[in-house]
């Protein structure tokens, strides 16, 4: 996209953590230093998967002040379109890759008296960076981390060893669950909640906080929607005067990029609003999957977020 230069990195380490999660360490090509970032930021990793170029966002989990390397953790998704599989199966130490400058859509509210973090599964990764940031500032935080099992509990050992008093771990297979009502009840004024995990967990925390009278501004969440495969469809791009076919395994945004039509983006996950595109004409149904547009905008047929949303029908004409 237009904007900051991308960053060329070399894969310095590939570490399998467990059956599902692998960690990658990126160092800048040609030495030098990477930009610092803020806890909660992600980078978009470019993958050349044969003919297809995939761009997936991953939370940065390393110390935000460490400029020698970035690390990410990738959970293998066998059902998805292949980005995580590509990372697991094709990326080797020594490979050169291209990543974006850090972007933060899940930053800490630095006014908070207390930061209450709730993680589910691979949703732990942004918190690893936020904890390092808060430790440096002597911040007040506690973490509640829910994992499927001990075997799949990424970074549990590290977290409980370094922060035994602030980290609470719950294993699904041992029938352990966060006692959310009791956890939220009695938190001091000025506490902010951060939740990162599966959609169900985010909705559960938001609904419970709302029912207990927590202000909307005190509840922060991040859910990256991976683009889902779907039926192929045809799109006419009015400005660039092109007709393109969106394949089963690619997103509308990726299809536009494939034919050289540049749409701006930051998150590629339906959250940031950058790729919002005006619909000029359509006959059919939108499959809106973003959480950027309001419900009435979804219903209006006037806008689409091409990073995650799709279309089924005869005609779709976009202002690109």
């Amino acid at each position: 996209m237009s904007g900051a230069e991308k960053i060329a990195v070399r894969v310095a380490e590939v570490t399998a953590l467990n059956a599902l999660v692998t960690r990658f360490r990126f160092e800048p090509v040609g030495g030098g230093l990477l930009p610092t970032f803020s806890g909660g930021a992600h980078t978009v990793v470019e993958m050349q998967d044969g003919e297809v170029k995939r761009l997936n966002p991953y939370s940065l989990m390393s110390d935000p002040f460490d400029q020698t390397a970035y690390t990410i953790s990738v959970r293998r998704d066998d059902e998805g379109r292949g980005g995580s599989l590509f990372m697991h199966e094709n990326v080797k130490v020594g490979d050169e890759m291209v990543i974006s400058n850090p972007v933060n859509l899940f930053s800490l509210d630095l006014r908070a008296r207390k930061h209450l973090m709730i993680a589910g599964g691979i949703g732990i990764t942004p918190f690893l960076a936020q904890i390092k940031q808060l430790d440096r500032a002597h911040g007040n935080w506690e973490l509640h981390y829910s994992c499927r099992s001990e075997a799949l509990g990424s970074y549990v050992d590290y977290l409980t060893a370094t922060h035994p008093n602030d980290v609470n771990v719950y294993y699904d297979d041992q029938k352990q669950a966060i006692d959310l009502e009791n956890l939220l009840d009695g938190q001091p004024l000025g506490t902010h909640i951060y939740v990162c995990g599966p959609k169900g967990m985010i909705n559960w925390v938001r609904a419970k906080a709302d029912a207990l009278g927590w202000p909307r501004e005190a509840v922060h969440y991040e859910e990256f929607l991976a683009p889902q495969p779907g039926k192929p469809f045809e799109v006419k791009l009015a400005v660039s005067n092109k007709v393109i076919q969106v394949g089963e395994q690619e997103s509308l945004l990726e299809a536009m990029e494939r034919v050289g039509v540049d749409a701006p983006y930051l998150c590629r996950g339906g959250a940031c609003g950058m790729c919002e595109t005006r619909v000029i004409d359509y006959a059919g149904n939108f499959i809106h999957r973003d959480h950027w547009l309001e419900d009435d905008e979804h219903a209006s047929g006037e806008k689409i977020m091409p990073c995650v949303s799709r279309f089924e029908g005869k005609t779709l004409v976009l202002d690109r």
Binding site: L184, D185, G186, Q187, P188, L189, G190, T191, L212, G213, W214, A218
Partner: peptide, 10 residues
């Protein structure tokens, strides 16, 4: 009063 209040106070 505010000093000892909890989140959820209306």
């Amino acid at each position: 009063v505010l000093q000892d209040a909890h989140m959820g106070l209306q």
